[in-house]
């Protein structure tokens, strides 16, 4: 992606975000008492200022984009373009995160973390599958021992197998 395109995309995104904040998000999701005499003290004042600044920066980015010469630029995406496989792995990672959130209250943090470790290790194509499985079992247990028995944190245990 060229620098120009990047600036333009960000600028347009910032302007849209600013408009969304000013016309939809702040009026609907920020509550303010009706008897405030000075607008500067209103809970809405600060979000409106920031929304305005987002728009100004967005316009600045668009202007900077126009002034930037078109040309190739090496960035994170171009340097590591992995094609379709990368997107599939990213979706897989998103599913692992959603699964972790969904399973944690039911299976408990330790067992969920074991699954999370193992699945992530295989998702990034580890060359050490046996070590990955061993680490997947050992690391969550060690962390559980530390946080539950040393730090006194109530680690979620789940509904099935409970640890001491």
């Amino acid at each position: 992606m060229s620098e120009r395109r990047l600036q333009m995309q960000l600028g347009i995104g910032a302007c849209l975000a600013s408009a969304f904040l000013i016309f939809a998000a702040i009026p609907n999701w920020v509550a303010a008492p009706s008897n405030i005499k000075n607008i500067l003290l209103s809970p809405m004042f600060w979000p409106y200022v920031l929304a305005g600044c987002t728009g100004v920066v967005g316009l600045g980015l668009i202007a900077a984009g126009y002034r930037t010469a078109e040309g190739p630029s090496e960035d994170f995406v171009d340097a590591h373009d992995e094609g379709m496989g990368a997107w599939v792995r990213m979706i897989g990672m998103a599913l692992i995160m959603v699964g972790t959130m969904a399973l944690m209250p039911r299976l408990g943090m330790v067992w969920t973390s074991m699954l999370c470790f193992a699945l992530t290790a295989f998702l990034v194509k580890t060359r050490h599958p046996v070590a990955a499985v061993i680490c997947a079992v050992v690391l969550p247990l060690v962390l559980y021992a530390f946080f539950a028995h040393v730090a006194g944190v109530a680690i979620p245990q789940g509904n099935f197998v409970r640890l001491p």
Binding site: F117, A121, K125, T126, H128, C135, A136, L139, P140, L143
Partner: peptide
């Protein structure tokens, strides 16, 4: 590729 899943769990 073992370190990164460990970081995630940590």
């Amino acid at each position: 590729r073992l370190l990164i899943p460990g970081v995630l769990v940590l």
